[in-house]
Amino acid sequence: MRRNVLEVKDLTRRFGGLVAVDGVSFQIAEGELMGLIGPNGAGKTTIFNLISGHLLPTSGSIRFLDMDITHLKPPAARCLAGIGRTFQIVKPFGGLTVWDNVTIGALARHPDMGEARERARQMLEFVGLWGYKEVAARSLTLPGRKRLEMARAMATEPKLLLLDEVMAGLTPTEISEVLPMIRRFAEEFNVAIIVVEHVMAAVMRLCEWIVVIHHGKKISEGTPKEVTKDPKVIEAYLGEEAFIA
């Protein structure tokens, strides 16, 4: 039996009159790969922000490794507790080199500069960016920056990793390189990973479990097969894009 890493219960977040996330509950276990999908503006990124502490919920609770982190502040405290994340709109430390970027992530676990740099090197090799180590982060291409974000988040040695659209804007070839990387990371380090993704085919191939969000509410949950057959999911996506193939 795998132990639960994250338990989200009745999570709700309002922005003024708008309810961006409305009573969402789900859980994820160690080493598990979960997809969080839904049409544009469904509230997926808001859920990530609530889990990573970049936003605080209006109501509901978040448990992480048997710890109530619903109101744990600031976001840094959650990173140190073991939650890593990437950003949908990538946020590299633009002026720094690729290696420095990842070193900063690694410093969260390895206060010693030398150890942190070594750890960063491993992560850069893992995502295939080692060759670009001295390049300024801002001059990387978009796929490069997305990998950099992943490497930096992985370097914080999370127990739970939140990947926000790390495959958006990538070519099919690039996606087929990234997929095994994510899977390997989950397996080797026994990390629970939640991916928010628009590239449906990739999510279906990657994840064991899918949670579907629509208008802030969870409308369906299950294995990829179950979810794609759910009439509610099909309805939610109808008229948006017909990409559930």
């Binding site: 502490g53 970049h54 840094a76 405290a77 990173c79 890593g84 430390f93 969260a108 930096r152 914080t156």
Partner: peptide, 9 residues
Amino acid sequence: DAAEACGIR
């Protein structure tokens, strides 16, 4: 934001 996500208060 990114700094916080790296555990920096």
